[in-house]
């Protein structure tokens, strides 16, 4: 009998962007499933707070846009855990919603560094420490498959993550599986960077929810469940899969 409480028993997991939002929920879910988790984030205090809740978890501060920092974070994780069985490249954020032609080239570069190059860096430094049967799961976005106006450059970076996921899956198979999740919008730190408010409300929220057949935004637990499933032995034939956690938003 599969019991997903123990499906990650003893597995060594690194989650980036884990101080809040999807990443914190992912770290909590893996911990609940019996994993040992390294909680990494640019926000060191936040990472420490999340790690403090989870038995055996450790916080490491990292700027995922800096190769040396990613390498140091991976090396420290390997030192602490003895290896890495699951890498969740979750760190990322949007730019402010607006017309693409008004976006500064610096913002474009920052978006690609944060959302795509970070995935490359995580993989580059972690894979040499990952044994056969390991799994990488990347947080992409349904906007990477079905972009809408307003976040064109963010969506393009996430489209890059999806193709990177599938290409890397082919490259590392059958030794290491590589999958991704494509969430729809959620009330996380994303909203602050995209809309400049803590939470979507009123008409903006209603318009957003209206496009989602399941009639609500995503919550971090939806994403955590999908990530944990993709990383579990239940999914051991799945690679290159980019699963939509979008409440059906992409159907129409």
């Amino acid at each position: 009998m599969t019991d997903f409480k123990s499906s990650q028993n003893g597995r060594r997991v690194v989650v980036t962007g884990a101080a809040s939002g999807f990443g914190a929920a992912i770290a909590r879910r893996f911990s609940l499933s019996g994993a040992r988790v390294v909680v990494t984030d640019l926000d060191e205090d936040g990472a420490k707070q999340v790690a403090a809740e989870l038995p055996g978890a450790v916080a490491i501060a990292v700027d995922v846009t800096v190769p040396e920092q990613v390498q140091a974070m991976i090396n420290k994780s390997v030192e602490i855990l003895g290896g890495i069985d699951v890498l969740v490249n979750n760190a990322g954020a949007a730019h402010r919603v607006g017309p693409m032609i008004d976006l500064e080239p610096e913002v474009f570069d920052a978006q690609f560094a944060l959302n795509l190059r970070s995935v490359f860096l995580g993989v580059k430094y972690a894979v040499p420490h990952m044994p056969d049967g390991s799994v990488i799961v990347n947080t992409a976005s349904i906007g990477g498959r079905r972009p809408r106006p307003g976040l064109t450059v963010y969506n393009a970076a996430k489209g890059g993550v999806i193709t990177f996921t599938r290409g890397l899956a082919a490259e590392l198979a059958p030794r290491i599986r590589v999958c991704a999740v494509n969430p729809v919008g959620a009330q996380t730190g994303f909203i602050r960077t995209s809309h400049g408010v803590d939470k979507l409300t009123g008409e903006t929220l209603a318009a957003f929810v209206n496009g989602i057949p399941m009639a609500r935004l995503a919550v971090p637990e939806d994403v955590a469940s999908a990530v944990e499933y993709l990383a579990s032995p239940e999914a051991n034939f799945l690679t290159g899969v980019c699963i939509d956690v979008d409440g059906g938003r992409s159907i129409q």
Binding site: M214, D222, V241, I243, D244, V245, G247, S250
Partner: peptide, 13 residues
């Protein structure tokens, strides 16, 4: 519980 319309590839890549 939030997934609908998902057509999940069980295709080994």
């Amino acid at each position: 519980g939030f997934l609908t319309g998902v057509c999940l590839d069980v295709d080994g890549g």
